[in-house]
Design a protein around this nucleic acid. Sequence first.
DNA 1: GAAAAACATCGATGGTTGTCAATGTCAGTG
DNA 2: CACTGACATTGACAACCATCGATGTTTTTC
Lengths: 94, 94
Amino acid sequence: MSAARALELSKQFKAIADPNRLRLVSLISSSDGSEACVCDLTAPLGLGQPTVSHHLKILVDAGILHREKRGVWAYYSLVPGALNTLAGVLGESR
Amino acid sequence: MSAARALELSKQFKAIADPNRLRLVSLISSSDGSEACVCDLTAPLGLGQPTVSHHLKILVDAGILHREKRGVWAYYSLVPGALNTLAGVLGESR
DNA sequence: GAAAAACATCGATGGTTGTCAATGTCAGTG
DNA sequence: CACTGACATTGACAACCATCGATGTTTTTC
């Protein structure tokens, strides 16, 4: 694996390598319509709103979550295939 | 996903969420006999021996690599199934 | 037993990260 | 236009992390 490819992959793995971000992905994927807004996510995690926004931004920047603003709310959903691609990388070296 | 489970998983993801550690896993899995010693790994990564030992220890502590001392050499190999388990976690939320 | 080779550990340092309080932005409401 | 509610952004701080040089440990060789 090239150094450049490793750096690229590590950015995505870093994004999910946090307990609260893992829970965010899990919460969103199991939500109604596979999407959720920030106000639905602060309570289950026990974190403040700025902190949750911060984590969501990291996941969006890594290409794992998609953000869609509808009115006052921001809806987050999984980017199709993003996690599967990462899973595939791990599966190669079994 | 429970907070405890998320914390447990995040520790393993953190272990591989580093470009040099990703390359270490890749190098080891593609080595002869799927194992390698430290002296084989420093040159391709361009890192010092203490740094490589440090990264390998993190991967061993996370349950991803296995360490076997034979004489003066320490041989590192993949723990069977460890990466597949992580890949499975990512596959669940597609 | 002295020397060398392979690896681990220690201490220090610069950089990164998770969290929060405070503040800013923007859409809807009356 | 003032007000409220949902989010994003900023600044600050403590904790953590990757790297390195120096040193310790263990095994093999002479």
